[in-house]
Simulated assay, not measured.
Amino acid sequence: MLRRLFPCVALLALGGCVQPEPQVVYVQAAPRVGCDTRFNVVNQSSYTVEQLYFSSSSLGSWGNDQLGRNVLPPGRATSYQAANQGAYDFRVVWGNGRAAELRGINVCVASTITITNSGLKAS
Rank of each mutant, 00 (worst) to 15 (best):
R103V: 08
R103N: 12
N43S: 06
Y53R: 03
T112Y: 06
C17H: 03
L14W: 10
R103Q: 14
V42C: 02
F39M: 05
Y47H: 11
G68Y: 00
Y26I: 08
R98I: 09
L120H: 08
D89C: 08
Q19R: 11
T48K: 07
N117P: 10
D36H: 04
T48R: 12
S46K: 14
R32H: 03
Q51E: 15
A99P: 00
C108Q: 04
D36A: 05
E21H: 04
G60F: 07
V18H: 04
N84C: 00
C108M: 00
Q44E: 15
P22M: 03
V24E: 13
Q81C: 06
T112R: 14
S46Q: 13
D65I: 02
S118L: 09
A29S: 10
A13M: 10
S45C: 09
V109Q: 15
S79I: 02
D36M: 01
K121T: 13
A83K: 11
N70T: 05
T114P: 00
Q19L: 14
C35F: 06
G95K: 09
L102C: 07
V18W: 07
F6V: 14
G68F: 01
G104P: 11
L120K: 02
Y47D: 11
R91C: 03
R103E: 14
M1P: 10
G95D: 08
A29D: 12
E101H: 01
S79T: 08
V33G: 01
T116P: 02
C17Y: 01
V71K: 10
L14K: 08
S55G: 05
N43F: 04
S56M: 02
G60C: 05
F6C: 01
I113C: 03
T37L: 02
R91S: 06
A30K: 14
N96T: 13
A87S: 04
G75R: 12
P31T: 04
I105H: 07
V49I: 15
F54H: 11
T78F: 00
N96R: 01
R98V: 12
G60P: 02
G15D: 10
S79E: 08
C35E: 09
A110H: 04
Q51P: 00
V107L: 15
V109I: 13
S55C: 01
T114E: 15
S56L: 07
R103F: 05
G119L: 08
Y88I: 05
S118M: 08
R98N: 07
N84S: 12
T112Q: 14
R91V: 05
C108N: 03
